[in-house]
Design a protein around this nucleic acid. Structure first.
Lengths: 214, 214, 214, 214
DNA sequence: GATGAATGAGTGTTCATTCAT
DNA sequence: AATGAATGAACACTCATTCAT
């Protein structure tokens, strides 16, 4: 075998390319990453890469797209069944399964550690660079609805848009911080529960503001 | 005068270059910014740029270095005089000047809006890209000291390293969020006070953990 | 059947490749045409193409070679039996079949419309790119012979090489113009007759020049 | 001098690049021409080329744009002052200066021999590739006007659009043929006069057709 | 102070072609 | 008869940087 003699078994080249790409993207970030280096590291020529992937961004996408889509699905599903102020009650009532969703999210993130690290910190220059913002927006809609629900039963109070946005952002950032600072999943989950307690508390306290303040 | 005929008075070229660079860096980010375009926009050739600045990074530094150093000084000073658990007491005792430091910080950030936006969101590829981390580290040392102080007077409790780090990070991120989402300084300050209340509360609640937990 | 499942009957793949190639070559020209796209359009892989055709040029040849050879044969035959100044007489004497040859030519061109359009306007980069010149050369030999025939019976006149060459070229170009501007064969033939009248007239008038001119 | 040590005198590099480009474009055609080879031949790196020219097409344009614009101006001017059937009369009356315009055209073409050869035969892939068509269109408008003028004074006759278009095309092609087959300007001019006679004759004879024919 | 010219290494990408299976 | 994988050379182009003048 002359061509691809470094290939051990079938269809491995694509896998090797993805593995090399992961390394390079994590090390240098999307923009500074060199396709030539990725190919060299994988032991193939640049042409081979273009057999498997349309372009540089598609290579990046091949690493992150599936885990990201899964994540978005999980969130969408959770938010849709969460039509009432259930989420809050979950925490307040400590009803046992209150953090099933958080557990699942943390597990999904750590099961695709590299992919999410890439999306969250190395995606500048790709169509994923605003990914966090989009997740925040999506989450915020749910939190705003919850806040309005609360406002409707608390006389003289209205929603503080900025604080709701900020709390949402901080909530998402907490997951990012976890991923970038705590490599152990079990540990991460334990901390995340504390953080969630903190956020629920904060949400109750800060999402609303007296009618006469801004 | 053929060369630099758009120069009005002395040393204006450097200023024009910095102004053009600000625009380009803010628009494209450090890495994608083109020195050619900056020079063209400033009405000089690339050679001229290299008379004033050692290289691309030095140009970036010329925009952000001074405001950043000032910020670090402010923080260092504040933290040094804060050798005791004063900061916490400030908030708890609501002694009037409790948020003088926060006000000053917010004011400094908004007085150098562009520079800090660059450092915080467009510095990937420069030596400033880990700037936030360094600020967090610096802040964290003070907060850890405060936490240990608290632990020493609370029987059966110890410092939770991760939570302290995370709270510090969130604190800093709050400033970043402000800068990127709230263009008005007065508004920003108002929100920041709420956030600080939230953090002091969180700190008291989460920085310590029972001796037998992790 | 996974491979080539779109193949209905035997040997159809070759045909589909040729059809796709026609489209691509006509649209982009030989050089800019992409074999990948041709194969994709035909629903096969590039490897398949190389089973049927030696290389890119052979694929082009498979489309144009036969019609071109036929054309050359027709012309050769016509010119050989035309050893005398018959052609001219044909027109001058308007003997009924004077334009039988022209009719046949036009018919052949329009029966292989795509092939001749390719040869005449999209062959840059192939060995057919000088095809027009070769046809002109071949035709010119006959016309030169006719001109010399005429010169031999007209005292004080000699053949004007340049004009003979040019008339030949214009004659061929007339066919090209027809193909590229007049899609209807009947119309084309009608116009061609007018053009031929014009050329015969021109030939009589311009192919010879007084002995003392160049 | 380390850089550009092969430069003999000032500002020569641009000239050398244009000269090398001319050679390469003439030899290979625009599309197959390699910028690397042009640069190597000129003794500079590819970067240098991009200092002088925006891209490949701009390099081509630098060779042909000026001569082409001049030509178009000449033609426009000539056609505008030619509001009547003057052109035809010129030839018919053989009034001495009847071919001043043709002379000028031929002279301009031969004074920029390479440029026009490039435009007319090697421009495939550039924005000049349809240049001949545009010139034909422009010329055709004038010829159509002349034909309509003639038709208005000849009872029972109307303009034959196809023949007018074809005659125009042949007229322009005659210039192209000259350039590609007759290197000597004096010779070219002599032949061109004969050709013009031929065309004027053809125009009178073929541009009109009886009302009842197509 | 600043220009104009040039470098040289690098980029992502495309291509026709090959060949073991 | 055709696939899927891979080659390797080429492509136009961009970049930060240098430096004689």
């Amino acid at each position: 075998m002359q061509r691809g003699e470094s290939v051990g078994t079938d269809g491995e080249t694509r896998e090797r390319l993805i593995e090399s790409a992961k390394k390079e993207f994590l090390e240098k970030g999307y923009m500074k990453a060199s396709l030539r280096k990725i190919c060299a590291d994988a032991g193939v020529t640049t042409g081979a890469l273009y057999f498997f992937f349309k372009d540089k961004e598609a290579l990046f996408g091949a690493i992150v797209e599936t885990p990201l889509q899964k994540l978005l699905e999980y969130m969408q599903m959770h938010f849709e069944e969460d039509s009432g102020p259930k989420m809050l009650r979950e925490y307040e009532h400590k009803d046992g399964d209150h953090d099933a969703f958080t557990s699942m999210l943390v597990h999904h993130l750590y099961s695709n550690y590299d992919a999410f690290l890439l999306i969250l910190t190395k995606a500048q220059g790709t169509r994923y660079e605003d990914c966090v913002d989009r997740i925040v927006d999506m989450t915020e809609r749910t939190y705003l609805a919850m806040a309005e629900n609360m406002a409707s039963i608390q006389e003289g109070m209205k929603v503080n848009q900025y604080m709701t946005h900020w709390l949402t952002h901080m909530h998402i950032d907490a997951f990012i911080h976890l991923l970038t600072h705590e490599p152990d999943e079990a540990c991460a989950l334990r901390q995340m529960r504390r953080i969630m307690d903190f956020f629920v508390h904060g949400f109750v306290k800060m999402a609303l503001v007296p009618d006469d303040e801004d």
